[in-house]
Write a protein that binds this DNA or RNA. Structure first.
Lengths: 342, 342
DNA sequence: CTGAAAGCGCTTACAG
DNA sequence: CTGAAAGCGCTTACAG
């Protein structure tokens, strides 16, 4: 039962608790020698500050909240690892709050969480980051928050993200450089902001290399595996076929591979397939899927960094901080140069 | 900025803060009328108790910790949903603590977390639940904890889990009832307790129906997709082939399907494949995989229940509480009756 | 059934 | 550069 308090440390060091507090909080105006004495006493006693006491007395709770609502588990998991690692480095802890963006009482729930926990900051993942009720509750309470990859209202609050357009652009370029000319594209869900950004990158890459986007090879999907399957069937059941299909997420790409299978088209020899997101399934499926890895871990840890440093709490020159992280293009076995027509 | 405190509520209700505290904590000995007056004042003021203050003054922190180390994201995600929902129902919150069971300073890290946060309880997922250093740190601090599906030392602490043997037994029975007689089995990683339990269920089901387990159809896997692939190749490249293969987890089952594909065996017509775990990939792959769904959400919420009710804190008749939850057998498209030899 | 006092372990002003 | 006092918002004994 460790009941070592700041008083014990002060007694052992022969100093006041205020001085101990100063050292522990890295405040200035402490003599080197005094500092060492405190640190040594704390170590000897294995002192651990009581978060509740710090929180009650001070302005900080050392708690950061992560709000999410059912995006993919793998996404949430990476977010948590990134956020937790940044938090731990500064003595913060992460509380997770699954919320239901469909719920009527969402605003009340969020308000309750914020005020009981006195969170120092909140990280919002899609689609929670685009929910007006959540943002309002946060703003009303004065709780700093950072949005990850928001879709709408980009200037409303601090955010971290990646450049979807450039990523789609580079993936497309990879396909073109392999020799593909006829490339199909499957759009994501029309409600998601990323859908247009990714398509834009695809079109820009094609255009930049003097290739035309064949409208018969572009279909509207919904980000689901089934929609990828349906779109791929529609594309591949035409007299003219593309030699590659770029689906704007991995789930749809898996559907494309299934459709190719059904049509006895072998991947990648007869059809190259590329996805986006680098989900776990991408490296489980056969052949392994070429895809774009989002910097999820880094985005989450950057979000916490902004919260902990309090950069997320202040506007600079009328705008909120906004940070784009580097993605990664991962070429695996589902793509190869097109087989020359025999 | 909501700064409504218990004092405000007391003032509005014309009562002392002690009485307000009694009502809010559901303590006995309060007149019905008084209770109503407090509740109304609290509602009118939109009062939210300050967790830090409650925690500092009282014996509880209203914080439950979830420790995990890199099992599958989908597993962790379900655990979190189950745990968080049970916590929220009682005004508790969940902090997540990714830990590294390979780390040298694991014990120090765990001790630090426990004492700064003053956790009311901890939920441990595999493999953290089998790490002696973590258990020791928890025990030394007197923090109640519940283990989810532990492998070793089952009597050491409270735990929740499922009956792996019976689940494997029932899945095997399903295969047999479809008409399969020659059934292959791929074992899990030798270090995992579930490996033997699942195999036991398989053998018992075969035996109970008077079928023999052909040793040539049983291979040692490692729970990885690649190991499933290798084992399946070994099994299927023999003169005699089983008509069904039961892999003891989904990852290996996906490897089996890939191997079948490579050998031009169509699933399920020429080979039925079953898995275990109901991972997301199981319902993404084509054909959808028949598998066993672990009651992960329920296990996690039961674990929190035990912590919140404090049942996890006391031994009864020399043993810790232990709870087995119901699993679910999910038959999808990767299994069907064997095709009669032509 | 209700309340006045003390105290949980820290940090915040304020002195010196 | 260091410290004594007050107080954060609750709950814990203890009275009545």
């Amino acid at each position: 039962m460790s009941a070592v308090t700041i008083t014990d440390v002060a007694a052992r060091a022969g100093l006041s608790i205020k001085t101990v507090s100063r050292v522990l909080n890295n405040e200035p105006n402490v003599r080197e020698k005094t500092r060492d004495r405190v640190l040594e006493a704390a170590r000897a006693l294995d002192y651990q500050p009581n978060l509740s006491a710090r929180s009650l007395a001070g302005a900080r709770s050392f708690l950061i909240g992560l709000f999410f609502d059912n995006p993919s588990p793998a996404y949430v998991y990476d977010v948590q690892l990134g956020a937790a690692s940044r938090c731990r480095a500064s003595g913060y802890h992460l509380t997770i709050e699954p919320v239901d963006t469909q719920a009527d009482d969402l605003e009340r729930v969020v308000r309750g969480i914020i005020s009981t926990l006195r969170l120092d900051g909140v990280v919002l993942t899609p689609p929670v980051c685009d929910d007006d009720r959540v943002l309002r509750a946060l703003e009303a309470s004065g709780t700093p928050y950072v949005r990850m990859s928001p879709d709408r209202d980009l200037g409303r609050a601090p955010r971290v993200g990646m450049d979807d357009t450039r990523a789609a652009y580079e993936m497309t370029l990879n396909l073109i450089d392999m020799g593909h000319v006829a490339i199909g594209f499957i759009l994501g869900h029309p409600d998601h902001g990323a859908t247009n950004l990714r398509y834009k990158g695809f079109v820009e890459a094609m255009t930049s290399r003097g290739l035309v986007v064949n409208p018969a090879f572009v279909k509207q999907g919904l980000f689901s595996s089934q929609s990828g399957f349906d779109c791929a069937e529609a594309i591949l059941n035409q007299p003219q076929r593309p030699t590659a299909i770029f689906a704007s997420n991995d789930d749809m790409a898996l559907g494309v591979m299934a459709a190719a299978n059904r049509l006895k088209l072998s991947v990648p020899d007869q059809l190259s397939v590329a996805g986006f997101d680098n989900t776990p399934a991408a490296s489980t499926v056969w052949p392994h899927l070429s895809t774009v890895a989002q910097p999820i871990f880094n985005m989450a840890s950057a979000a916490c960094e902004l919260l902990i440093s309090r950069e997320a709490a202040v506007m600079v020159e009328g705008t909120w901080v906004s940070q784009l992280m580097d993605f990664e293009i991962i070429m695996r076995d589902s793509t190869c140069p097109p087989t020359p027509a025999l």
